[in-house]
Design a protein around this nucleic acid. Structure first.
Lengths: 120, 120
DNA sequence: ACAAGTACTTACCCTAAAGTATGTATTATG
DNA sequence: CATAATACATACTTTAGGGTAAGTACTTGT
């Protein structure tokens, strides 16, 4: 009889990790591929929905709006709509969202350096 | 007959986005949930495989090693193994990987502030 | 002889995320 | 009356990532 490998209780561990690791906490909010990219474009200036869309041609509308909603729920972006037609909706960074600008800028800086071969 | 909505050629767009948006470039390297967390733990000091594992109990071995390999391929971490038994493998940040420390630190800083309610 | 520790690997499954393709409300304009 | 523009919504499919569980090689310790 071989010993049974103890199953790691991943779900419990995740809660603990959230409390202990600050980066894990951030990943819960802006983890994934698209969110930092969206935040990057909003960091330069608030934008209408269609402007964000044009700024990120590689994203589909479904995914874009989905992330915008989540970012809004998480208190990182603010949605403002004017009751006109055609609709006029603006997205901007909240205070918490603006707090992420150093993160985004650090990323951009690294990318530029990397592509210049600064780390080789 | 209704006009057919022109399908967006997402794949081509992605290449363009990569060239134009620095954050997109970063996301191609460290996008996803786990990579920044791994880099965070390596940023404090190089670690043996088992140490990384213990530092991130919420990750499974499969996913951990998978990401370590990718990070190595992308030139962000360095793997060094001593030909002894039991195996002794150390992971550390490369120069490019170290270049990401400001990003990681900015994240950690934001997380701490957020949880203190600094953005409310 | 068998367990224990290290650094993996592999096969299989499952779900969440992403992509495709369309539809909708409203109003101004030709 | 059809069209265009904006900001979405939604049904459906596909894919990639992640999770589970187990196996492997080699040696030291009991």
């Amino acid at each position: 009889m071989t010993a049974v490998k103890k199953a790691s209780t991943i779900q419990e561990n995740k809660q603990i990790a959230l409390d202990l690791c600050p980066v894990t906490y951030v990943m819960e909010k802006i983890g994934g591929y698209w969110k930092p990219i969206i935040l990057y474009h909003l960091s330069k200036q608030s934008k209408r929905y269609s402007e964000v869309k044009r700024a990120i041609p590689a994203i589909t509308e479904k995914v874009l709006i989905q992330h915008l909603k989540q970012l809004e729920e998480d208190g990182l972006v603010i949605r403002e709509s004017k009751p006109v037609v055609p609709p006029f909706v603006t997205y901007s960074l909240s205070t918490a969202g603006k707090g992420l600008i150093p993160v985004i800028n650090a990323m951009a800086k690294w990318a530029i350096k990397e592509r210049q071969g600064a780390f080789m």
